[in-house]
Computed example of a mutant assay.
Amino acid sequence: MTTCCARLSKVYMITTNLLYACLGVAFIALGLIGMRDGFSGATLFPENVFKYLAILGAIICVASIVGIIGAYIRKTTVTYLYMIIIIGALVFQVLIGIRVYQKAANAAHYLSDLWPVASASYRLNLQNQFSCCGYQTIIDNYVESDTCQPTASLTSKLPPCAPALQSFVKSTFGKVYLAIFAALALELLAMSNAITLLCTGSHVDQDEEDDRRKRRKSGIRLDDMTVDTPTTLVGQEEPKYYAYSNNQEDMNQSNRYDSYDMYRHTNSPNHYSDNHNANTFNNSRLANGNGGAYY
């Protein structure tokens, strides 16, 4: 059951981080396109927002790589590093979303403060992109161009830029901050997976796993593992034990055989006959001469 859960967790971790990496690539692409003014109205976004989006995408890609590595290398340090990067990316992403939302919620105030202080090239770019002239009126801080000439006839005049710019900010900014906040679901999903690995106990340190693997190879039951349990592999210590045991058995067996041979020799008929002849010989010597020489 634990092995099955570990495999499912591994697949879930890889899938989540692949989706997370796609989100990071999308943020990087959006940031690079916005910094190059790749679409109409890109310059209306708050300053450095696209740069922050590109940095956020890079952080998310790094987090996804660490998460995929953590799916294969089950180390606590890797998981904690993964969680720290996700938390940093999440906070950074929320701050960007809040900033974009504030501008979208107060589009009129944001643009009325932006237009007067903007440079002539900036306002000219917006007039050309939205086909307008001036801001509130055609003579309100306008930049003269081929299409924006307030002194010309009424038929050649363009509408003021305020309505078009406010509509763009409300719609486009709204879509961007909704996408940013919706993307938080992937980060929370990845975070929940990392927390689950730590809390359920399915996360096993790699060093501990290596030690357990060595113990299994040594033939020692995992239930009998203690601090004093030897971890020497078979072929080093155990042969000494077996060799000692075999020598002891051989010695015991040899002692048993020696005892049996001595008993058999002592109690054999030949041994009894030899003893009887020796006693008869001694008695005859005593009878002939009180221990004299016998010829």
Rank of each mutant, 00 (worst) to 15 (best):
T2E: 12
A6P: 01
R7L: 05
K10V: 03
T15Y: 11
L18K: 00
Y20M: 13
A21T: 09
L23A: 14
V25G: 11
A26Q: 11
A26F: 14
A26H: 08
G31I: 06
I33R: 09
G34H: 02
M35D: 06
D37R: 15
G38N: 03
A42N: 02
L44A: 04
Y52R: 08
G57V: 00
I60Q: 06
S64Q: 01
A71F: 00
Y72L: 14
M83F: 03
M83W: 00
M83S: 13
I87V: 13
G88C: 13
L90W: 10
L95D: 08
I96Q: 08
I98T: 13
Y101Q: 15
K103A: 12
A104Y: 03
H109L: 11
L111N: 04
A118W: 02
A118N: 01
S119D: 05
S119Y: 05
Y122S: 06
N125V: 06
N125W: 02
Q127S: 03
N128K: 11
S131L: 02
S131H: 10
C132Y: 01
I139W: 03
I139R: 14
N141Q: 13
E144C: 00
E144Y: 05
D146V: 06
T147R: 11
L158M: 06
P159L: 06
C161S: 02
L165I: 08
V169F: 03
S171K: 13
T172D: 12
L178G: 13
A182F: 04
A183C: 07
L184P: 03
L186W: 02
L188C: 04
M191D: 01
M191C: 07
T200Q: 01
G201D: 02
H203W: 06
V204Y: 11
D211F: 07
R213C: 09
R215P: 01
R216E: 14
K217G: 00
R221Y: 12
R221E: 12
L222S: 14
M225W: 15
T226W: 10
V234N: 05
E237D: 11
P239I: 07
A243L: 13
N246K: 09
N246D: 14
N252E: 15
N255V: 02
M262W: 11
Y263V: 07
Y263H: 10
Y272W: 02
S273P: 01
N275A: 14
N275I: 14
A278I: 06
A278P: 00
N279F: 12
N282T: 10
N283A: 15
N283F: 09
S284Y: 15
A287Y: 14
G291L: 05
G291Q: 12
G292E: 12
Y294Q: 12
Y295K: 12
